[in-house]
Design a protein around this nucleic acid. Structure first.
Lengths: 139, 139
DNA sequence: TTTAATGCAAATCGTTTGCATATCT
DNA sequence: AGATATGCAAACGATTTGCATTAAA
């Protein structure tokens, strides 16, 4: 998704598409690695030297409130962002730090005893050692 | 679980059971509401006025490393602690803030495409409006 | 010309650390 | 004594806020 498509996407979701918002959304959409605000800021600063870290934080929070990004937190407590808002599994490798997506075949609509609760969001986060790091070890 | 049982439990898990550790573990075990370090500190300070917040943080981290507590993070990013280390679902009510436990009937061992990954921990966090808050609304 | 968004720096808040004191063996 | 744990205050790092400036409607 390029910046112009991102603008369109934002407008379609009722979000005033400024240059910063569009470039941030475009970046997040393309990067599938669930970056933190700090990573987004440092990458985009190269293209947009005037960009402020506060704008990144505020923009992500704004996107989040408008339901176009997910906020992910793992055990380290740092917020990661994901442009894919559908329910899916995240696997966080505790060795390399990579976050993998798995679009799940699990049905979360039939949990014992949860009747009467309105579930808006489902986060399924796994932690362990990824395939890659396991292979590195056996080399 | 009282303080003396907590001591025993800690020793059984290879943890040097000091007074602070035992009282903190006992508190956490009894409270089923997944408190933050701050809440633990403020509650226990009443009983143990000399208690330090750093001790609470360090102790929880130590328990966590020794696998007798789980660390839970929700969208707000604050760490919550849980003495139940088994995989179970947490439901965080975004209205009243309550965190509910659901011991799940779901089988997480058969996820599409995750073969070759070593999964150590599974966090399943739901967010929405709890039964109680829903009832309040319709009054 | 009014409203909304940005950028910067300072403030805030949760958490960690350094170090002196206390506790336990 | 020697090792480990605690308490306090300072440091730290992620995030938020206040406010002046800029861009957009």
């Amino acid at each position: 998704m390029n910046v112009s498509n991102a603008s369109k996407y934002l407008e379609d979701h009722g979000i005033n598409a400024t240059y910063q918002r569009a470039i941030i959304y475009s970046y997040l959409y393309k990067k599938k690695n669930h970056p933190t605000a700090d990573i987004i800021f440092n990458d985009l600063k190269k293209k947009v030297p005037t960009l402020s870290k506060a704008t990144v934080y505020n923009t992500m929070e704004y996107f989040h409130k408008n339901n176009i990004v997910q906020v992910l937190t793992f055990e380290d407590g740092v917020r990661h962002y994901d442009a894919d808002t559908k329910t899916h599994i995240h696997f966080n490798c505790k060795q390399c730090g990579m976050i993998y997506d798995f679009h799940t075949n699990i049905d979360f609509n039939n949990i014992n005893g949860i009747d009467g609760f309105d579930i808006d969001k489902r986060f399924i986060n796994f932690e362990g050692i990824c395939k890659n790091c396991k292979m590195e070890k056996t080399k």
